[in-house]
Amino acid sequence: MKKTIPRPPRAKASRLQRANYKWIYLFLLPTVIVFAMFYVIPIAQVFVTSFTQWDGFNAPVFNGVRNYVNLFSSHSFLTALRNLFLWGLVAVFLHVGFGTLVAFVLFQRPRGWKFTRAVFMIPNVISAAAWAMIYRFIFNDDFGVLNGIIRIFDPDFSVQWFYKSPWAFWAVTFTWLFYAVIVTLIVLGDLLNIPTELTEAARIDGATGWQLIRCIQLPLCRGAIGTSIICSLTARISMYEQIALTTAGGPDYQTMSLPILLVNAITDYRYGYANAVGVLMFLIGLAVLYVVNRAFRMDESDY
């Protein structure tokens, strides 16, 4: 005979809470208004008008998938996609890799680790615009630090890093490549959360330093690494200042990014086209989240 297990009664709103409904929805109202005003309506608008030709003054005219067809047959867009792909690879393997390396180094608490951690944050508390400008000067041919150092050895050396192919792409990459403090802090946070019993147990079983890192610590901070990858890929999708204030997408689109394309389209009053770029940015963002979440099994708990 099957025994019926009495189910726990479904948590029902108590009378007190029901009396509070008025207040509950009132408290939610400001957030809902901001959400509608800056997310729901704009996103809907972007999606709808991406299928139109629109100059912002006259009414939008429906033109099917023309904007998308134009995008995928334009040299600038395809280069921007290729750049995003390359920058994405650099971000996942080198940027997040470097940030993780620093986190593991600081976790060993070498002398000066707190100072290093504090100082590493400085480039991130400065406006990205100012940082781009600083790098524009560092890579300047006439008075930049880099060429100044190279000229000590080779007095006739001269390269305009931000304006010459193929250097421009790598010069832009360098402005963010090693500045991975967010990655470091997130990963370090996860490392500090590993229960000490776990590490102790592994040590008693004879695990050496490298084994400890490879088999215990690295797998246990995969959530943090996954989060870092999402953050840094999202930053790549919306990379603007580092490019707009250095190369402006040149030379010959070699440093083009989607936001630069989008802004260029807006200044040309091609709003439909701009919004088609917006839709694609949005979709790429969603795809990144889905893939990384899957790859790092981030919704599973370890402890």
Partner: peptide
């Protein structure tokens, strides 16, 4: 989930708003 929406993608509607 709004975390995932690249801010730049909403440029035109926000500009118009």
């Amino acid at each position: 989930i709004t975390l995932l929406v690249p801010g730049h993608s909403k440029t035109q509607p926000i500009f118009s708003l």
